[in-house]
């Protein structure tokens, strides 16, 4: 493990701390305001996709710079990233079930039957 693995290279003065944190905050604020503005631009099913992509970018910024995941510590990175795997399982199973079983078990709510607004590929707007 390198000498910097647990933050030994972290800023030690107010100036260095501000330099390390304020640009990240500015990027977060810019992303938040742009996602608010984008929500009013008609993009059909892509509005939610765009705002979720911006949310994911904000999460990466907070995780890497504020939650110290940029430190080259394997234990920290593994524990900081494990939830992605479990949440991935959860989402994959939920939506696999929904995509394959819902049209059969709940035809009244199926977007194809009711002619509700659909996005690309006949899927409902995401």
């Amino acid at each position: 493990m390198s000498g910097h693995s647990l933050g030994e290279g972290d800023p030690r003065t107010l100036r260095a701390i501000l330099w390390r944190t304020v640009p990240v905050w500015a990027a977060l604020i810019a992303l938040a305001l742009s996602s608010c503005a984008l929500a009013y631009v008609p993009m059909g099913g892509f509005n939610m996709a765009a705002s979720l992509a911006i949310a994911a970018a904000k999460m990466v910024l907070v995780g890497v710079f504020f939650m110290h995941l940029r430190r080259p510590d394997p234990l920290l990175r593994l524990s900081g990233g494990a939830w992605l795997l479990w949440l991935g399982f959860l989402l994959a199973l939920v939506f696999a079930d929904q995509a394959t079983r819902a049209p059969i078990s709940q035809p009244a709510h199926s977007p194809d039957v009711t002619g509700r607004e659909t996005g690309p590929g006949g899927m409902p707007g995401f």
């Binding site: 933050g7 972290d10 800023p11 030690r12 003065t13 107010l14 701390i17 501000l18 390390r20 944190t21 304020v22 990240v24 905050w25 977060l28 604020i29 938040a32 904000k58 907070v62 710079f65 504020f66 110290h68």
Partner: peptide
């Protein structure tokens, strides 16, 4: 809340540096 994350990140660094 984003600004509170900035101040919390500053606190995290500052406490460690004993400022």
């Amino acid at each position: 809340l984003l600004t509170s994350s900035l101040t919390m990140a500053m606190a995290s660094f500052a406490t460690r540096a004993e400022l």
